[in-house]
Simulated scan of single mutants.
Amino acid sequence: MPGRQRADARRNYARILAVAEDEVAAHGADASLEQIARVAGVGSATVRRHFPTRRALLEAVSHRRVEALSARARDLAGEDDSRKALLDWLNDVVAYAASARGLAAALAYDGSAPDPVYENSCAATLEEAGAPLLDRAVRDGAVAADVTVADLITLVVGIALATEHRQDPAAQADRMFRLTVAGLSPGNGPRSATDRAGTR
């Protein structure tokens, strides 16, 4: 029976996660856990057994997208222009966070005490992936030495959360990111995020 129970638990997890992905896509980080349980055909207690916190659920829903962004960082690591490589990656993170509802909330640092099991693994994974890109850009003098990957993830989260209810969140998030990269001085308008890659 233990083997069958484990198989049932795996099936429940897969079904809950599939439903949760749909619900988060439709309702964002505030997706109802009770609704997820109803659609998945399980009890609320079963959902909470697999995902004891809302963050745990959002992290699971966002896992594949975060892995894709990590792979993208590895692909860009060999680019000649270290600043452009970093900005290209950040642009992708912004686009994902703006279009994939729930991802920004999964990446957010909420100030709560760390959970040894459900600590902010999405943000940690992205920080680990982006660190080599940032380190190389800093060594090349293309980015200020005091900038951290955590700073950049916080910036992305802020942009995504600030624009998620706009008519076209992805376009607005892209504009805010380009403004941030270009700066607010006259003549530094919101061109493409990588147009100014050569500017030091």
Score class of each variant (00 low, 15 high):
R139Y: 07
R101I: 07
D168V: 10
Q5F: 15
S82K: 14
D75G: 08
S62A: 15
A144G: 10
R72A: 15
R49H: 15
S112M: 11
P190R: 01
G3E: 14
A113N: 07
D22G: 12
G158P: 03
V19Y: 05
I36N: 00
A150T: 15
T148L: 11
V181R: 01
S112G: 13
V94Y: 02
L86Q: 05
L103K: 00
P190V: 02
A104E: 09
L69V: 10
E127A: 14
F51E: 04
A14S: 08
S32V: 10
Q5P: 00
D115H: 13
V156H: 04
V19S: 01
T125N: 05
A7T: 11
A20D: 09
D151G: 06
A193I: 00
Y13D: 10
D151R: 06
L58A: 03
V19C: 01
D151C: 13
V94G: 04
V94L: 07
N91Q: 08
A123W: 06
L179N: 00
D80Q: 12
S62H: 08
E21K: 15
H63Y: 12
T125G: 07
L155S: 13
N120Y: 08
R64Q: 11
D75V: 13
A40D: 01
A25W: 02
E164K: 06
D30K: 12
D88F: 02
S192N: 11
D22L: 10
Q167W: 11
N91H: 10
S44C: 01
A85Y: 01
A26W: 01
S82F: 00
T180K: 02
D174Q: 13
A100D: 15
A14R: 08
R65F: 09
G187P: 00
T199S: 10
Y118N: 10
G78K: 01
R10I: 13
N120L: 09
G102V: 07
G187M: 05
R54G: 03
L33Y: 11
G198E: 11
E21G: 14
I16Q: 03
A170P: 00
F51V: 07
P186I: 05
A20G: 03
A60Q: 12
A31W: 11
R11A: 15
P114W: 05
S121R: 13
A7L: 14
L69P: 06
V117H: 04
L17K: 00
G198Y: 07
A100H: 12
D8Q: 08
A142R: 12
A100V: 15
R136V: 07
A85N: 03
Y96L: 09
A170D: 03
G43N: 10
A98Y: 04
A31Q: 03
L17Q: 02
L161M: 11
T163P: 07
R191Q: 11
G158T: 06
V147L: 06
L76E: 02
R72Q: 14
D140E: 13
R178M: 05
V149N: 08
F51R: 08
L58S: 03
L134N: 07
H50A: 08
A97N: 05
Q167S: 13
R72M: 12
A14P: 04
V42C: 06
N91C: 09
A20H: 00
A29V: 04
P116L: 03
L179I: 06
V19R: 02
S32L: 07
D174N: 12
T194H: 06
R74G: 08
A18G: 03
